[in-house]
Design a protein around this nucleic acid. Structure first.
Lengths: 172, 172
DNA sequence: TAGAACGTTTAATACGTTTTAAACAATATG
DNA sequence: CATATTGTTTAAAACGTATTAAACGTTCTA
């Protein structure tokens, strides 16, 4: 069985999901296709099924390889490369999100050091600097404590600690 | 005192930070400028300081108003609108992130319901569907338990629960 | 009431990113 | 060795978003 029976709509939606994670549509669509296909697919298969250009698929599939979202596999008797999805979807998203966290952290760091070079800050500006540094510190500690990989299990735990948190918060 | 003494670099960096949060550069820059300026600024002030067009500032400042990142204030004796920053930077980011979480959740929901319409799923495809539904469930519960507002205090707590989590995880 | 001072809207432009088609390089095959 | 098969690179085109300049409507002021 293959993905031909799948509504192409599904692929479209996974594409949008990708876009919301800061990727591009095509990358998401390719992942979606592979995720839903029983068998690994070759570059040409993807070209045909998604009606994309060969160049684009080549480019985007390497992007997917880079985060270990797909794996190149060898199929006996074929010269083609085949691609197999990493079904650990949550981890793929997680890694992606971590990269973004680090980018944000970098922005903070540059902003702070740039700011500190200035030796004629007003009272308000000094306060703001203190504030930003606090935020940076927290982001930094979150980033440091983020595990390499994450499972659904771990997320569930986090999620429940979140609900505990909510119960102790003052009601709005 | 005003922001003239600030390296324009700082504004640039806050712009990039905004971009990493899925905004556009200008929105981030305007926020950065107001964040660092002792006094509220008028639309024209911003136009001059950031060398942006009036239309663009008008558009983007309304965007900032929409998430309560800035507030329009009235200055006695002036016909102009002035804008004051909401210095609760972390909350501004937080709200923004929540919106994105909801978007992702929507993608999941559409993908799942689209998927379920198909009545000839293979074994693998059924497994994948189960997996996706689990992920959706967790995202949903996180989204439900997210507080309306968040303080540095709360984030610190979350951050420390994260480090506890790390300590119980198997070492990679 | 005429003109100035504002902020908003709009249509055109600029810009960056994605996507393509085609040229290319490398490898396998007959 | 010539050709076919495959993936990659590249330059150009297509596309969507951001930005601008200018027109506009409103409100204030003299």
């Amino acid at each position: 069985m293959n993905t031909d029976n799948l509504n192409i709509n599904f692929i479209r939606i996974i594409g949008e999901l990708g876009a919301n994670l800061g990727l591009n549509r095509s990358v998401g669509q390719i992942y979606g296709l592979l995720y839903m296909n029983d068998e690994p697919l070759s570059l040409d298969d993807i070209v045909i099924k998604l009606k994309m250009s060969k160049g684009s698929v080549s480019l985007n599939i390497r992007e997917l390889e880079r985060w270990e979202a797909v794996k190149k596999i060898w199929v006996r008797g074929s010269r083609k490369d085949f691609y197999e999805v990493n079904p650990d979807f949550i981890n793929v998203i997680y890694k992606r999100t971590n990269i973004r966290t680090k980018k944000i952290l970098n922005s903070f760091n540059s902003a702070i050091s740039d700011f500190e070079k200035n030796n004629s800050l007003s009272k308000v500006q000094k306060e703001r600097l203190v504030q930003i540094k606090k935020i940076q510190g927290i982001f930094q500690s979150i980033s440091n404590n983020l595990p390499e990989n994450i499972s659904l299990n771990i997320i569930s735990k986090l999620s429940s600690s979140l609900s505990v948190l909510k119960s102790i918060l003052p009601k709005k």
